[in-house]
Design a protein around this nucleic acid. Structure first.
Lengths: 245, 245
DNA sequence: GATAATAATTGACATAAGTCATGTCTTTTT
DNA sequence: AAAAAGACATGACTTATGTCAATTATTATC
């Protein structure tokens, strides 16, 4: 590859219209025209390394982010320094909406592995919203989705046993794999047990024991972070999504 | 009062500009002009009785709501019928944003006592947003606020002991009283113990015991639903908001 | 390629908080 | 005014999970 070509890469515009994540990401359901306009404000995907912070609690909110590859976790921080993971964001998923209230982020965003994220600068996004009614609607949908997903997590933390929580986590993960046209019953978790435990509001040891117990009961096969779901139906029964025994 | 006057009341327009909740509610921080425009789309406050549903999970999302008087709780419902209260909404506070994702509500809204709510129809709000850039920004702020408040609750459910949860609940309540220029150290809770327990993810008995224990420790005085805060500072220490013993 | 550091598992034990049961005090109904 | 229903409190007991500690992988470092 010539030096010139290597240089060119940095000047390539993002193409939402050609991105294979467009059906999952911001553009989902948007008109072709609006999508083209959108890509003109999206900054070149930014690579971030494992454990690197994209933003921190208190930072000025400059953009909305979309995961292009890898995985990013967002976590809320309490006054006494404790952290609660509020989301794991997979390719095509958006995050950073917490900064919309006061223009300042209220949580931390950290890469779980080397990842790349598209940045949608808020000022440009705002301007574009004035011109494109479709984009405005899209924004509302995205925020609504965030609220709904937070509610689901509240229900999980407030009302479920740890067994139900882990089952629910695995099912949600599987569903998102499926959305991405990856295997829904065999995947690698990109987060350590510690993070799963934190997210589900329990101790690491409990996560370990539950993985072992699920495996024992023939629901899943666990090999480190590689999970194979053997009895999807039974998992659904556990979280009340499915009536049959 | 003449019959004519009684009739007229039903045709009075809402006045956001004159509402004494405007600094807490949707108009907060908006230009005078935008506010006048806003009030033209707000429907006449609707009275709802205690335990009456304003909307249910699955209902079409027709409006955004603002509490005018009383108190409304919103609760997420799981597939197996369990409910998690995700918010208690006091005068000046907004709710109903959960319906923005797919145009369908994903939780239930129920009045805790006889209440009155302003309705902001989504279609009118949408149209108005095209004309008023300020309104658009306001919408984003409101949604951001909702996300932040959900995160705070996630932190509470995921990481706090029940003692910390109740302390946190009382402090948040007190703060909201203060915002409304009511007594911050003496107030009536408008929800039964059962609802507090549900919201904080614990059993009613635990709430009762904690109220008793807080009273014993001289932190608060409890008389049924009437609470007097005696040692605000110590409550803050409990949730890590304050360093001094 | 050995050594250290990190991540995950497993067992023994402790405990915070739940469940069950009973009783009191309000509030509503008749 | 009595009775019934609902809300709240309190004690006894249970249990789901957390905590602590030791062990075994895995991955990173020199």
């Amino acid at each position: 590859m010539s030096l010139l070509k290597a240089f060119d890469i940095n000047h390539l515009k993002v193409s939402c219209t050609k991105c294979n994540l467009r059906e999952l990401c911001f553009p989902h359901g948007m008109a072709e025209d609006d999508m083209s306009n959108l890509e003109s404000v999206v900054d070149q995907p930014k690579p971030i390394h494992k454990n690197e912070y994209l933003y921190r609690d208190g930072d000025e909110a400059k953009a909305l982010y979309a995961v292009r590859s890898g995985c990013v976790k967002t976590m809320a921080e309490s006054s006494n320094g404790e952290e609660q993971i509020v989301g794991f964001h997979m390719p095509g998923e958006l995050f950073g909406l917490d900064g919309f209230a006061e223009g300042v982020h209220t949580c931390n965003a950290v890469a779980l592995e080397t990842s790349s994220v598209c940045e949608l600068p808020l000022n440009k996004l705002e301007m574009l919203c004035h011109e494109l009614p479709g984009l405005q609607k899209q924004m509302r949908r995205i925020m609504g989705k965030e609220v709904s997903s937070d509610h689901r997590l509240l229900l999980l933390l407030g009302k479920m046993t740890s067994e139900e929580r882990l089952a629910s986590f695995l099912l949600s993960f599987s569903r998102r794999m499926q959305e991405r046209h990856w295997k829904e019953d065999e995947f690698n978790l990109m987060m350590p047990r510690q993070d799963i435990a934190n997210y589900l509001g329990m101790a690491v040891e409990t996560v370990s024991r539950l993985f072992a117990s699920f495996q024992n009961d023939g629901l899943i096969k666990v090999d480190r972070r590689h999970i194979t779901i053997l009895d999807m139906n039974q998992l659904k029964v556990m979280v009340g999504e499915c009536e049959n025994s």
